[in-house]
Design a binder for these strands. Structure first.
Lengths: 196, 196
DNA sequence: GGTAAAAAAGCACGATCGGTCACTGTATGA
DNA sequence: TCATACAGTGACCGATCGTGCTTTTTTACC
């Protein structure tokens, strides 16, 4: 009764969908291409997903899981505040560059593509990004004792995310390796200012 | 002999292509949709462009022209350095919010979508963004006398662009109106630090 | 106002789109 | 081992994709 093979195939489909969406965008992913890439027929896909949208939903969800696992890796073991924030930031930069070969960060691609397209995909992305932001904000609040204000923490989280986005564009579109140095310098200075 | 009407129609097609690309991405724009939106038949489009790609190229190029005109408006009349930079930054924020109704900034959408898709579209985008960056860098160099280093100017331009990207995501995807305040505060502090 | 050129429509093409259905092989649980 | 639930195929649906080719309608100039 255990559906072992089915689950493995489903996972391959989800991963491939995310891969293609990161490159072309969700709106340009085709069932035919995904099916061919995983070595299935188009109709075979429908044994695992009831529709293309359900497939994309699973891909985005799993993509976000991967993102969190990657970026928060080893952060739990570090003390809250600056050590954690620096680890997360470095992981995040790595994420951009590791994913470089695979077409870039799926979440960032989705964020820009879906921001004006209502639907379950955007809803999922929104709630997950908001949760992630709240986590970062809490970490900034732990930077100082007594803690900084909520607004200051949000300000800092805003800048952190901004540097990540700036790094991604300069690194991926402009192919400029200095991007990482710029981002790290900017973030380090932000931590200095916030913590002092 | 003068092809007056043709040029007007062409301009409408280009504008509409840009509009749709900003929403769905270039890869998801269809000739049928564009044709219907401008009130033409599909085949009518081919009297103005030899291919879909040529149409997209024109749309991106014209979109960038509009971006530059909007962001640099009234900046020439201001003295170089801080006044100009502040005007450009505010214009840029306005641009994001004005374009809000129209599906967001075409250039930003293209930057994320095309960063891993080689071709003439990406080439055009790259060169135009690099030119724009050089312009910003020069403006940062004018911030101080004697001027800051090249690297410092690039660092500052990196942060400026980052704040724009951060503002765009927080404003458009998360629908958070505080984004503008965060971005302005961050940019103001950056200018203070750089200029002092 | 006639005429030549430009603009646009109409139509058809092969390919591909997302999706359904009836069918077959196969892995799995009893 | 055997029955069965499940994974996967192939043919096919109507719609739409980008793009030619031919014809008709507008437009602009003399």
């Amino acid at each position: 009764m255990a559906m072992r093979k089915g689950e493995a195939t489903r996972a391959r489909i989800v991963a491939e969908t995310g891969r293609q969406a990161a490159i072309r965008g969700f709106g340009a992913v085709s069932l035919g291409d995904v099916a061919e890439a995983v070595g299935l027929s188009k109709s075979g896909l429908f044994k695992h997903f009831e529709s293309k949208e359900a497939m994309e939903l699973a891909a985005l969800d799993q993509g976000f899981d991967r993102f969190l696992a990657f970026n928060w890796a080893n952060a739990d073991e570090l003390p809250p505040g600056r050590p954690r924030l620096e680890a997360v930031f470095d992981n995040w930069l790595d994420w951009t560059e590791v994913e470089n070969a695979a077409g870039g960060c799926l979440i960032n691609q989705a964020a820009v593509e879906l921001d004006d397209q209502p639907g379950p995909l955007r809803d999922l992305l929104r709630t997950r990004i908001q949760r992630w932001r709240a986590r970062l904000k809490a970490e900034f609040l732990a930077l100082r004792d007594p803690p900084i204000s909520e607004t200051e923490a949000e300000q800092a989280a805003f800048q952190m995310k901004s540097f990540i986005l700036g790094h991604s564009e300069q690194r991926r579109l402009l192919d400029d390796e200095r991007a990482r140095a710029y981002a790290r310098a900017a973030f380090g200075a932000l931590l200095d200012r916030t913590q002092a």
